[in-house]
Simulated assay, not measured.
Amino acid sequence: MTCVSPGGGCDDPAARSWAGPWIAYNRSTARADGNFSVNDLSTESSAMFFRRNWIKTTGRVLDSRVREWYHNRMRGHVVGMPIAMHNYIVEFTAPNGEPAKLEVEQHIETVDVAIGDEVPLFVSPDGKKAVFDKKDPRINLMAVHKASKEAEKKADEERFRRQLEG
C-alpha cells in the first residue's frame, strides 16, 4: 500500500499526480484511469470521510430553502433537468442532551424532505455540525426509488389478479 500525504511520503510521482493529498490506494487495485474503490482508502482517510465517532440521531425539519440548482454535465454540456438542492434547518437533541438547531445541506444522493419530517442525522460529538445519514433508506434516493417501484409492481400485480378473478 502506498500512501500519499500532504507532507510527501510518496515515492511514485504518477500516484501523487492523480491520488491527491489525503488518499491512500492499493497499487494492485488502482486503475490506469485514476479511479479507485472505497475499499482502497486507508484507515486514516476513512475517519475523515466517514465521520467516525459522530452520533446517529433523528431530527425534525423546521424550514428549507433552495441552496443551488444542480446541473448534470456530460462532456461539458448540461444534460437533463436541473435538480434543486436544499438547505434545511433541523432541530435535534445534541449529544450533551440540549436541544439544538443547525443548517443541514441536502446531498445529491438524498431525496427532498418536507417541513415537519423526521430525518436521520449524524451529529458531531460537540453537537456543532450535522449531516444527513444519506444511507438511511428513508431518505436515500435509490432506496426510496426502489421501494416506490416495488410498491407500484405489487399494486399492479394485485390489480391484475383481481381483474383475472373478478
Rank of each mutant, 00 (worst) to 15 (best):
residue 2 T to I: 15
residue 2 T to K: 14
residue 3 C to P: 00
residue 4 V to Q: 14
residue 8 G to R: 04
residue 9 G to F: 11
residue 11 D to M: 06
residue 13 P to E: 12
residue 13 P to I: 08
residue 15 A to I: 15
residue 19 A to S: 15
residue 21 P to F: 08
residue 22 W to F: 15
residue 23 I to H: 07
residue 26 N to Y: 09
residue 27 R to K: 10
residue 29 T to I: 00
residue 30 A to M: 03
residue 33 D to P: 07
residue 39 N to P: 00
residue 39 N to D: 10
residue 39 N to T: 03
residue 40 D to Y: 01
residue 41 L to C: 03
residue 43 T to A: 10
residue 44 E to Y: 06
residue 46 S to K: 11
residue 47 A to R: 14
residue 48 M to V: 15
residue 48 M to A: 03
residue 54 W to M: 01
residue 55 I to R: 05
residue 58 T to C: 09
residue 59 G to P: 02
residue 60 R to G: 01
residue 63 D to V: 01
residue 63 D to Q: 04
residue 64 S to P: 00
residue 69 W to T: 04
residue 72 N to P: 00
residue 73 R to H: 09
residue 73 R to M: 13
residue 74 M to Q: 08
residue 75 R to V: 05
residue 78 V to M: 08
residue 78 V to H: 04
residue 79 V to L: 01
residue 81 M to T: 07
residue 82 P to E: 11
residue 85 M to T: 15
residue 86 H to F: 13
residue 87 N to S: 09
residue 91 E to I: 01
residue 94 A to E: 12
residue 97 G to P: 07
residue 98 E to A: 15
residue 98 E to K: 14
residue 99 P to T: 02
residue 102 L to S: 07
residue 103 E to T: 15
residue 103 E to D: 02
residue 104 V to I: 04
residue 105 E to C: 07
residue 105 E to D: 03
residue 105 E to G: 14
residue 106 Q to D: 04
residue 106 Q to K: 12
residue 106 Q to M: 15
residue 106 Q to T: 09
residue 110 T to V: 11
residue 111 V to N: 03
residue 111 V to D: 02
residue 111 V to R: 06
residue 112 D to M: 12
residue 114 A to K: 15
residue 117 D to P: 04
residue 117 D to E: 13
residue 120 P to C: 10
residue 120 P to K: 08
residue 122 F to Y: 14
residue 122 F to L: 10
residue 122 F to N: 08
residue 123 V to Y: 08
residue 124 S to R: 06
residue 124 S to L: 03
residue 125 P to M: 05
residue 127 G to C: 09
residue 128 K to F: 09
residue 132 F to V: 04
residue 132 F to L: 15
residue 134 K to R: 04
residue 135 K to A: 08
residue 140 N to F: 00
residue 146 K to D: 10
residue 147 A to Q: 12
residue 147 A to E: 12
residue 148 S to F: 14
residue 148 S to N: 15
residue 149 K to C: 14
residue 150 E to S: 11
residue 154 K to I: 01
residue 155 A to V: 00
residue 158 E to Y: 05
residue 162 R to I: 06
residue 162 R to E: 13
residue 164 L to Q: 11
residue 164 L to V: 11
residue 164 L to C: 02
residue 166 G to Q: 11
